[in-house]
């Protein structure tokens, strides 16, 4: 009873705060999943982005109370249905070699930590790969199966299931060595004002997070929740799909999902979120 009263008070307070200040992220709220796993949603920026952000903030902090609550309980998190599909696909044999993911990798828990390090250079060291590239490399070269579409439902189910294995681990991508030039390219893209509206990523997500464009509450555009269940799309959405939507909304010619440009941008944006917990998987409006 006492606990209920406190919850009610907290909720009432949250509504007041949201009404009074539009330049939030929400204050004093913790992202605790299933009452058990506390995720880092605020962290000091890494040295490489210290001049850009005073504090690194998860997109979760910018969402309304109902959406935040949805992510805090796996039974309420609509992304978990897709994750279940992904777990099933992990064990499903496909392609000419008669293999599933599990045939080589065993239990999917062997993927723990992977999501936090992506994108990264491939084994050959000649290309920067997102998780989707690694998955399709396995499918085409080891399984003899067809590549999945970058943002198709099988792919997002799989990236969701793999991301869940890294839940709570801090984002930490390598931006040195051969990745350095990718990172520099991504940074240049982040600050380039594209399209007829001449907007860069930074215009909205660095200079105006916490503010509103019409009903859209701008966040820092962090990747820690991805793939995210986007209520507007009623499905899991990939990082590159969201990039595409943003660039399109500047009235620009977008890049393709999986393109070198978007992989470079993914690396740079991931580096801006260093230290945030992988949410595996987030819920956004």
């Amino acid at each position: 009873m006492l606990r209920q009263g406190r919850t009610f008070l907290a909720a009432a307070l949250a509504v007041c705060v949201a009404g009074a200040a539009s330049a939030d992220p929400v204050e004093g709220e913790e992202l605790v999943i299933n009452g058990d796993i506390t995720l880092v949603t605020r962290v000091a920026p890494a040295a490489s982005v210290a001049d850009a952000l005073p504090e690194v903030l998860s997109g979760w902090l910018f969402r309304d109370e109902a959406t935040r609550a949805m992510e805090m309980d796996d039974f309420d998190n609509p992304a978990m249905l897709a994750v279940d599909v992904g777990l099933e696909l992990w064990d499903t044999v496909d392609g000419s070699e008669g293999k599933s993911c599990a045939s080589c990798h065993g239990d999917i828990s062997s993927m723990k930590g992977l999501r936090a390090k992506l994108p990264k250079m491939n084994a050959a060291g000649d290309d920067l790969w997102s998780m989707e590239n690694f998955i399709n490399d396995c499918r085409t070269n080891r399984m003899g199966a067809d590549a999945w579409k970058w943002s198709g439902s099988e792919m997002t189910a799989m990236t969701g299931a793999i991301s869940l294995q890294s839940r709570g681990m801090p984002m930490s991508v390598a931006i040195d060595g051969p990745a350095a030039e990718w990172w520099a390219k991504g940074k240049e893209m982040y600050y380039t004002r594209t399209g007829q509206l001449e907007l860069s990523c930074a215009n909205c997500h660095e200079d105006n997070y916490g503010n509103h464009i019409r009903a859209d509450h701008l966040s820092q555009g962090q990747l820690s929740g991805f793939p995210v269940y986007r209520l507007k799309n009623a499905k899991l959405v990939s990082i590159h799909n969201r990039f595409k939507g943003c660039v399109r909304d500047t009235r620009a010619e977008t890049y393709a999902e999986g393109s070198p440009e978007f992989r470079a941008l993914e690396l740079y944006v991931a580096s801006r979120g260093e230290g945030l917990s992988i949410e595996g998987v987030g819920v956004r409006p």
Binding site: T192, R193, T194, G195, Q196, E198, K244, V247, R248, D249, T250, R251, A252, E253, T254
Partner: peptide, 10 residues
């Protein structure tokens, strides 16, 4: 413009 698009079509 940089990468000018056709309205909001992408």
């Amino acid at each position: 413009y940089i990468r000018q698009g056709d309205g909001y079509t992408g």
